[in-house]
Structure formats: C-alpha cells, structure tokens
Write a protein that binds this DNA or RNA. Structure first.
Lengths: 119, 119
DNA sequence: TCATATACCTTGTAATGCAATCTATTTTTA
DNA sequence: TAAAAATAGATTGCATTACAAGGTATATGA
C-alpha cells in the first residue's frame, strides 16, 4: 500500500552506505536520511535496525560524549559490513533493472512474446 | 538478508503493470517475471497476491478454458488498479532517487554537511 | 526549576514474500 | 491402459521487518 513496504530490506543497505562513509550516530543517520528524501522515517526504525546490524557483526559501536544531550553511539562498518554493502548494491541494481524492465516493456502495450527483454 | 525482503511492496506494482498491458493468468505472470530476471519467484507468492489484489478491487478475474491443463483465471485491471499502478510508479521512482542519492553521495567519501543533495 | 532539544531504547503490531503441500486437468510416454 | 510430466491454481504457517507509541536520560537556556 504505502511506501513503507517498499523499504523492506533496502533501508539497511542505505544505513551501511552512510556508515561506511563516516563514523555516525543513530540520530545523525535519521537526519541524513530525511535530507535524502526519506520522509517520515521514524527513529523507531533506525535504532532497532542498528542493534540488529550490530548483532550480525556488520557494524561496531563506540559510545562517545556529546556536546549537547546524552552520549552518542558512533557506528563503523566491519569487514563483514562492507561485504554486505557490496552485496546489497548488486542486489539493488538487479532489482532496479528487473522492475524497470517490467515497467518499460509492459506499461506501453508492447508485445514481447516470451523472448528476451532488454539487450 | 536476501533479495526477497527487497520485493516487499514492489512485486504488486509489477503485477499491476503486467496485467494492465494484457489480460493474463497467474501462471503466465510467474513465467513473465522469471523472464524479466526475477529468479526463483514462487507461485506461492503470485497466487495469494492476485487474490489479495482482487479483494482490494484492483483487478477482476474471469475463468476460461485452457488448451492444456485446468481452467485459467484471467486478470484485468480495474480503474482503481490503474490508479494504484500510477501511484506505485511514482513511489518507485521516488524510492529509486532516494536510495541512489544515498549510494551516490555517501559511498565515496563526499562530505555533504547537511545541505541539499542533488538538485 | 521547567522547557526544550538532543539522543537512545523497547514493545507490540501489521504487512507480505515464500516454502511446503495440496488439488485438478491435459498431454505424453511406456 | 497406466504412469509421468507439464500446466494451473489454492492454502497454511512462518519469518522478516518498518513503524507507531511510549519511555529514559542528558545538557542548555529562560
């Protein structure tokens, strides 16, 4: 129905990409995602995801003092996390191709009787 | 973990696109999706989805005799289904933009301190 | 002291892809 | 004729995961 279902399995790839670029903390990630267009992305989504990724050893976390507010948990990618990011990028690109193929070849009355699509 | 999670909420958009193009039956859709690159897409996914979409009045179904095998259920888009397809395409394009922005701006050490991304 | 912004966490729920399994029909093969 | 395979559809139950709602804690400024 809404956009939220489309995020399943995609959001963690985005987190990995953001964490790879720079050591970041959860609240910061939430703000970043918002600036990238992910409207209405709740922190109730981010924090559990970070905890899950830590459990899966994709990221490590270190607690540091903040200049304002409580201590921040800074996340970094592990080697396993970098591999997961690469794997995500491949799967994401594959998915984009597949979906865009469907939209391209189906959405405008083309008849592609069972032969190959694209080139 | 796998690609399956990334399909959530996306697959139904693909079905709508395929059905809009031409009256089709479930088994045919499964084969088509396979040809578009959606490997290992189970029929246990397609049929419940079609039933759900029918319940939501996005599609209608008519049973017709087959040349080989049991009767086929041919699906067509309703007006509501066409609207849902348009809505899906918008959301899909938005999602693509957002994710690709993250991957583009984060994956290569750019520092984009809180300002706007892209144009 | 109280309000506000920052920062993080937990619980429960709903949505949905899919494996597994089943039924039924037609054609092909032995 | 009997068995196998291909076609076509359906159902049950499970696992994953985004998110709302609510909570905790720290620092700053009025």
């Amino acid at each position: 129905m809404s956009t939220t279902q489309m995020l399943k399995g995609i959001l963690d790839g985005c987190l990995l990409a953001i964490i790879k670029n720079k050591e970041v903390y959860g609240y910061e990630i939430a703000k970043k995602l918002e600036s990238y267009g992910f409207a209405s992305l709740s922190e109730g989504t981010i924090y559990p995801l970070l905890i899950r990724m830590k459990k899966e050893e994709l990221v490590t976390a270190t607690s540091k003092k903040s200049t304002a507010g409580p201590r921040r948990k800074y996340y970094s990618l592990t080697l396993k996390g970098e591999e997961a990011l690469q794997s995500f990028i491949k799967r994401w690109n594959g998915l984009q191709n597949n979906v865009n193929n469907v939209l391209r070849y189906e959405s405008d009355g083309e008849e592609t009787k069972g032969d190959e699509h694209g080139e």
